[in-house]
Every structure is written in C-alpha cells, then in structure tokens.
C-alpha cells in the first residue's frame, strides 16, 4: 500500500509544482508604458502601453492612486469627428502585442489627484483575466512623458523587455 502510494504522492507533488508554474504560464508582459504629463489643475490624462499575453486573456480593469476614476477608452473617428467610448474589456489574444496608444485604445486617468509631471513614475495596476476567469493583478510603473509627446507608436519603438 505504501509502495503504491508513492507514485500518487509524486503525482501530487508534480501537480503542486504545475500549480505554482501556472501563473507564470499565463503571464502578460507590458512594454513601453507611459503617461502623458498634465498641466496644473488639468483633471485628466492618458496612459499608454503595449500588452502581450502568453495565453488568451483580457484586460478587465486598471487602477491607479493618481486618479479617482480609471477607465479604458477607445477613440473612434467618424468622418472628422473624434469620439470616445468606454471599453469594459480589451481582448489580449495569446502572443499578440496589443497597443494602447493615443490613436486607439488607451487608459484614461480621470479626476487627477495632483499634477502628473514629466520624469515622474505613475503606478498602475492592470487587472488581467485569463480564459478560465482567473484574475491576475499586474503592477506597472509608467514613466511620465511630456504633454507634447505624439506617441503614435512610431516615434518611440523602445526595446521590448
């Protein structure tokens, strides 16, 4: 009996190890994160980044201590009219880099608690949901770039981490 239990124990140990390894498997990497500087008393600004999930996931929320409300918005162009709408979740297909930039999807930091100044770091927490509904909280430090940053995605192709 004791002998036959051994493989099970090994199996359990293996499963336990696998369990530990799972969060790493479902990892999302963030690169080129930045926040646009604000001027004094400006009430909101945007955060931008590139996300790559290792397995199909969704960005379901963003939190930051610098703003009262944080939402993901999508910019749309309808003729010459620029529109904004809130997006509840951003699909992150496995292995595909999804860019949040000023010309498309982006994070809105609304109701800023203070001015966001160039050179500072803004802490963001990304809430990522995997295909099974498991949630991961990913802390990101986003450097603040000048207000004048174009940030179309072409001007700043930094090395991916």
């Amino acid at each position: 009996m004791a002998v036959s239990l051994q493989p099970i124990k090994r199996g359990l140990a293996a499963i336990a190890l696998l369990g530990l390894a799972l969060p790493a498997l479902a990892q999302t990497t963030v690169s080129d994160a930045w926040v646009r500087a604000s001027v004094p008393h400006q009430q909101s600004t945007g955060a931008f980044m590139t996300l790559t999930a290792s397995s199909d996931s969704k960005l379901v929320g963003v939190e930051s201590p610098v703003a009262k409300t944080v939402q993901v918005h999508e910019m749309t162009m309808n003729g010459d009219v620029m529109g904004m709408r809130e997006v509840k979740a951003v699909e992150l297909p496995a292995g595909k880099a999804v860019t949040l930039d000023p010309n498309g999807l982006h994070v809105m930091l609304m109701g800023l608690n203070q001015q966001v100044k160039e050179g500072e770091q803004v802490p963001l927490t990304l809430v990522i949901e995997d295909a099974k509904g498991g949630k991961e909280r990913l802390p990101v430090q986003a450097p603040v770039r000048p207000l004048t940053e174009a940030g179309g995605g072409h001007d700043h192709m930094h090395m991916k981490h």
Binding site: Q43, Q71, D80, M82, R85, E86, M110
Partner: peptide, 19 residues
C-alpha cells in the same frame, strides 16, 4: 463643428470635430 458630451464614469468626455 460638431461636439457632444459623452458620460464617462462620474464625469464626461467630449466627442468633437477634429479639423
């Protein structure tokens, strides 16, 4: 120029012409 307020959370954003 077209513009309209769009509610966002407890605040609002504005859709507008960009020309």
């Amino acid at each position: 120029v077209f513009y309209e307020k769009v509610p966002a959370g407890d605040t609002y954003t504005i859709s507008h012409s960009s020309t």
